[in-house]
Amino acid sequence: MSVPGFHRPKSVEDAARLLAETDGARCLSGGATLVAMMNASLAEPKAIVSLAGIPELAGIAELANGGFRIGAMTRHAATAGDARLAGTLAVLRDAARQIANPVVRNMGTIGGSIGFADPAADYPPALVAANAEVEIANAAGRRRVAARDFFVDWYTTACGPGEFVTGVYLPPPRPGAGLYKKLARVSGDFAIASVALSAAKDANGVSIRIAVGGCGPRPIRADAADALLSAKFGDAAAAAAAGEALAAAADPVDDVRASAEYRRLVIPRLVAETVAHARAALEAR
């Protein structure tokens, strides 16, 4: 029994204590990134704290206010398959089902994905568009951070040393639409660029939250884009102006998938396409 340096605590408190006390420890969720890095000698953790044995981190629970808590260890496949994430929250399901392929979706977790904070990952913009909050634990307790403040920089989050993600809180779903458009070289690859959009619709009109992925150190958003789209949803000129506002806020780089210039050009088109699809989805309701 038990490999030296390997820990599998049964509670969040024990995991936080182990991470704080153990020199060079990293937490392990699905392993789809951490173990790949270890195999490539890009990471050599001295100790590993597996989150797999902590019951409260598993699964999606409905809250008293009608919102949801997605435990950090919830696999992408479970999020993609949960029909309760409807209306505005469908943006998260739509993102989850486009991550990688079925086998990776059986392994990867929401906590591991956002804790690693690859800017090309699919959850970060979707969580911003869903107006989610991220719960973070440390040895002293827990706190919550809005998704838009959680992602700080390339591969950098609001988690400090010894801290880890325990879950994601979603507000109650509102009637409307939520969708995620991903532009990738082949289906299942990381995004060149992506757009996450939630559209709440009621008697007072439409309220939009939009965020762009893969085009900067963190999910790109712009108050002007949300305001333009909310005021005139479905208006082509408003969609174009919102696309330009997001492209201006983006900070893309050249990488193997595409150049920065290509990304700036493609954002307004992807925004226009996403808005058109969201409008069709609202009309079909």
């Binding site: 490999v3 390997f6 392990l28 699905g30 392993g31 173990v35 392994m107």
Partner: peptide, 14 residues
Amino acid sequence: RPQRACLSLAANCE
């Protein structure tokens, strides 16, 4: 469930 053996740490498979 199908998963990657190359991304699964043996110690985490107990």
